[in-house]
Every structure is written in C-alpha cells, then in structure tokens.
Amino acid sequence: MSQVTPLGGYLLVAALVFSIGLAGALTRRNAILVLIGIELMLNAANLNLIAFWRYGSHPEALTGMMFAIFSIAVAAAEAAVGLGLVIQIYRHAKTTDLDQMNRMKG
C-alpha cells in the first residue's frame, strides 16, 4: 500500500463500499436491506466525487462538490419513495421477502 496515493486510497475505499452495497442489494431477501445496499452504493459514488474534487485541478470551481450535494438530495428523495413503496407492498402482500414477490398482478 506504500505506493498508493491518497486519492487512490479513497477510490479503493469507495470501490469496496460500492461492491459491499452491490453484494447486499443482490443477495439479501428483505426489500429494506436491498434499499440499504443501494444507499451504500450511492454513498460510495459520492465519496468518489468528493475525492476527485479534492485532488482535482480546479477545486474552486466546485463541480464535484455540487454534484455530490445534488446527489445527496436526490438519494434522500429516492429513499423516501422506496421505503413508502416497501410499506405499501408489505400491506398488500404481508411480506417484505423479495423471493416471495414473484407476480406483478395486484
């Protein structure tokens, strides 16, 4: 790890968190845990944006920072709608187990 630059270290951490979130979203059965995995993936992308902003050539232009801030806002909206959908599905099907949600007809 001695030759890894600070930016490379942040990118590796972001890649690791993204992969953990992807593994969670793909392997868990509870719909809420899948949403948690998606949130982890979004956060890893934000870490990439902030790291590139910090070590980029024009941090005063604020592009990476603005991208991350808008990404946080959109992720909050996504979480609210996603959890609302999970609650409604639970009312309808009495389960949040994705393996049992195998039909689209209401």
Partner: peptide, 16 residues
Amino acid sequence: VFSRTWLAGLAVAAAV
C-alpha cells in the same frame, strides 16, 4: 436472510 441466488450476486459484486 440471503436469497437463493446469493452465490451469483456475490460473484457479480466480487467481479465489480
């Protein structure tokens, strides 16, 4: 707590 297809999901995540 894990899906039936957890091995494929883990493989995809590891590949990514």
